[in-house]
Structures are given as C-alpha cells and as structure tokens.
C-alpha cells in the first residue's frame, strides 16, 4: 500500500512510541483488539511515520505496507508464493509475505488465527533471531531485508477457543492491546473522519457505547468505530440520523430480530 498522505490516527495511549521502539529493535508486533477499533489504521499510520516521513532509504519504497486479511482457506502457499502457468512454462510468483521480506516492507497479517496452521511455521522462522523465510518449492531461504517487520493482529474475544493463538507463537511478539476509544475520543474520531459536527458525533459515540453493551448477544464484536463513521458520513450527505443509523448500524450488527429491535430502540431514544 502506497501512502501519499498521513493517515489520521488519534493515539489513545503510548502505542505510537511503543511501536516505534519495537520497530527500532525490529521486534515483531502483535495487535490485539476487536474488529473496527482502529488496528489497521494504526498500522497505516505507523507505516507513514516510519517510511514516508523518514529521510532514510525506506522513504523510496513503493509499497511500504503489505496487508493480508487472513481467512480459513489461507495457506502458507498464499503467503509465500506459487508457480503460475505462463505460456509454455511455469514461473514463480512471490506471495505478499515473500515480497515484503525481500523489499523490506511492513507485512501485516490481519486476523492471523483464521489462517491455516501451516502459516505459523513461516511466522516462527521470521520472528526469531534467524529472520529468514524458507521457501520449499524453490529450495530457497530468503533472509529478511533489514527494514522488514512482521505485524500480526488477532481478536481473542470472538474467535473460537479452537482458534486461539498458540503460546509458542504469541510469545514471539510484543503485544499492543487495543479497545474501542472512550466516548469522547470516539466522538472526536467520528467527527474528524466523517466531517459531521461535534454534537452529532457525540450522539453516534453514545450509540456505540450502548450498543456494545449488547456484545454478548450474538455479535461479540460490538459496533465498530468504522460503522459509526459510516453512519456519520451518511448523515453528512443528508440522510436523516435515525435512518442513517438504521442502515449503517442496526442491520449490520446482528441478524437476530430481537437484538436488531433493541439496537433500533436504543438508536431511537438517543437521536432528538
């Protein structure tokens, strides 16, 4: 991902300094926290700080951040690369992880526990002192570029216990824990991102807090800051606030009719 402008990120603690320190020592980073609370944005922001702002060689890197959203069918091959058919021959194509290892980009594996277990083998060799990526199919062992750093994220809350991150993997990373911002901070973020006025942003943030109280009822994730921003953007474009919340929040958080009704009722009393 090429970054032209500084991605907006409102720090909620010392995470920026902690990440920078980890990067200076090339310590792999694990980001924990619920979906839509700003992990990806944080990584983009840090990439901009570490790559686009710097005077070093890193500045020239075209793709300083390579993000992979992991899913249950994602295998090691998808990360490392595979042979493709091209005309009469098979040619090797680097996967996103190999690309990052070679060029010295940041590689961000989002929701890593969703991926198949064979991916952890790659992670292990890249995150200890060896910093190498073995590629079986080409019989190659790629040493990581000096600037390369692996970042993974996972959400211990909603993934099933069967998919928990193994301690042997978890202990290779320094961990930064994220949660949804406080109501005031979230209002600030919503106002900035969607461009609506502070009063409306505050009401949206209140909706966020109240709806997250229902997390246990089938939507462990709660409502993300991202969804609240979507609602703000709809309001900004002239959609009536209740309707905007309906579209962006109520139907997005749950399929359970009673839960939808409750969320809709909460939205109803919060808007004037």
């Amino acid at each position: 991902m090429a970054l032209q402008e500084e991605p907006y990120y409102l720090p909620l603690g010392d995470e920026v300094a902690a990440f920078e320190a980890a990067y200076q020592s090339r310590l792999p980073v694990l980001l924990k926290g619920p979906t839509g609370c700003g992990k990806t944005r944080f990584v983009e922001h840090m990439t901009w700080r570490l790559y686009s702002q710097t005077e070093s060689d890193r500045h020239g890197l075209k793709e300083p951040l390579i993000t992979v959203s992991c899913h249950e069918d994602l295998t090691a091959t998808d990360l490392v690369g595979r042979y493709l058919l091209k005309g009469d021959e098979t040619v090797w194509q680097d996967g996103p992880l190999t690309q990052a290892v070679r060029t010295g980009a940041l590689c961000y594996l989002d929701e890593i526990v969703e991926a198949r277990k064979d991916t952890t083998v790659l992670i292990h060799s890249l995150t200890d002192h060896r910093r190498v990526l073995p590629i079986d199919k080409t019989s190659e062992i790629v040493s990581a570029h000096a600037d390369f750093l692996l970042i993974i994220s996972y959400n211990p809350g909603y993934q099933s216990v069967l998919k928990d991150l193994k301690p042997s993997t978890r202990q290779r990373f320094v961990s930064l824990t994220f949660d949804y911002p406080t109501e005031d901070r979230e209002a600030e973020i919503i106002a900035h991102e969607s461009g609506i006025d502070a009063e409306i942003a505050k009401r949206l943030a209140t909706i966020g807090v109240k709806v997250r109280n229902l997390r246990e009822h089938g939507f462990e994730e709660g409502v993300s800051t991202r969804l609240l921003i979507y609602a703000g953007e709809l309001i900004k474009r002239g959609i009536e606030p209740r309707r905007a919340s309906e579209i962006a929040i109520v139907h997005a958080v749950s399929d359970d009719v009673a839960v939808q009704q409750a969320v809709s009722d909460i939205v109803d009393v919060i808007w004037p």
């Binding site: 109240k210 709806v211 009673a258 839960v259």
Partner: peptide, 11 residues
Amino acid sequence: PLSLFAEGIAG
C-alpha cells in the same frame, strides 16, 4: 427486546 434494551442502556 425490552431486556436487551435495558442491558444496552445500563451496561
């Protein structure tokens, strides 16, 4: 829906 509403409001 009322008990969910109350849980949302009260936390």
